[in-house]
Design a protein around this nucleic acid. Structure first.
Lengths: 152, 152
DNA sequence: CAACATTGCTATGTTTCATAGCAATAATAA
DNA sequence: TTATTATTGCTATGAAACATAGCAATGTTG
């Protein structure tokens, strides 16, 4: 079998695709963020929830899930876990709906998570140093919205 | 508990973050691609491998993993599965290295996967209609490379 | 009141990727 | 040549994020 055309750089009709680039970029940054948050014992989703609850005290679990695109089925154990750790307080508003708010410990964690996320955002600045992030933001927003149109 | 400020649109200090946008955009498009590929019984990683092997017949499994950022441990069952389905042929070049190539059935699948991926890329065109994708490509490439610098 | 929708939840599976460790083989150094 | 080291493929295992199916309790609507 002829391998003479297989020096180190492989022929790659994949990496030129926007979808693949998007995937790799996202996974690389998720690894970075995940590593940072691991130091305070949080996963990205958990940090996201703490921050969102912090900005919306009293919000309903299902609203949260809708905004974050997380299904109810996956929301339940996430919230339970954060409540079990003493970060979230649930209080029924309804009989079926639960209003969420941060405990003191939760607010402390939110603050730390927020700092880590800010630092993480600064990595984008380094990587894209000088570039205007506006177009990137706009296009990613459009993609996120456009792709979500079909999914339920 | 005061919920008067909690009309439908939640306060969101998360969605403005580039990292979160990237994540949502990627996951939305992955869902789109995954749905398309499911129709021919392939997962995104599998399609990616078929296409890459098709462009590099005789390539070594570990090179493949390096290019795609897939660990050896995860590469093994992927390749085994594709070989078991009759899409990939393995032939030892070394005693330890395996050269990969597409079978006829594999080439047929590669072709179909390629068409689905092209159609998927066309969704980006729709969503970003008119926008120049150049900057997006450049920035995502930089992010993918920059984020990978740290990871092993 | 009856029919329907929403909410939280359990159970379960899928996809992608991570670590730890092993045996066989190749490459390099002594 | 031999000894050390690195590479390759592999297994086993788990984590993270997400999906579907279905249930009981509650609210909303006709």
């Amino acid at each position: 079998m002829d391998r003479s055309n297989l020096a180190s750089p492989l022929n790659d009709p994949i990496i030129s695709r926007l979808g693949y680039l998007l995937r790799r970029a996202s996974s690389a940054m998720m690894a970075d963020l995940g590593g940072g948050l691991a130091e305070i014992g949080l996963r990205p989703v958990e940090a996201t929830i703490l921050i969102l609850v912090g900005a919306n005290p009293g919000c309903i679990q299902s609203d949260l899930g809708r905004v974050l695109g997380i299904k109810r089925a996956n929301m339940a154990p996430l919230i339970s876990s954060l409540a079990a750790k003493g970060y979230l307080a649930k209080s029924p508003v309804d009989g079926r709906s639960l209003a969420l708010s941060l405990t003191d410990a939760g607010e402390a964690m939110r603050s730390r998570a927020d700092a880590i996320m800010d630092e993480h955002e600064r990595r984008f600045d380094e990587i894209l140093n000088g570039c205007d992030q506006g177009p990137l933001r706009a296009m990613l927003t459009a993609i996120a919205a456009g792709g979500a149109e079909q999914g339920g």
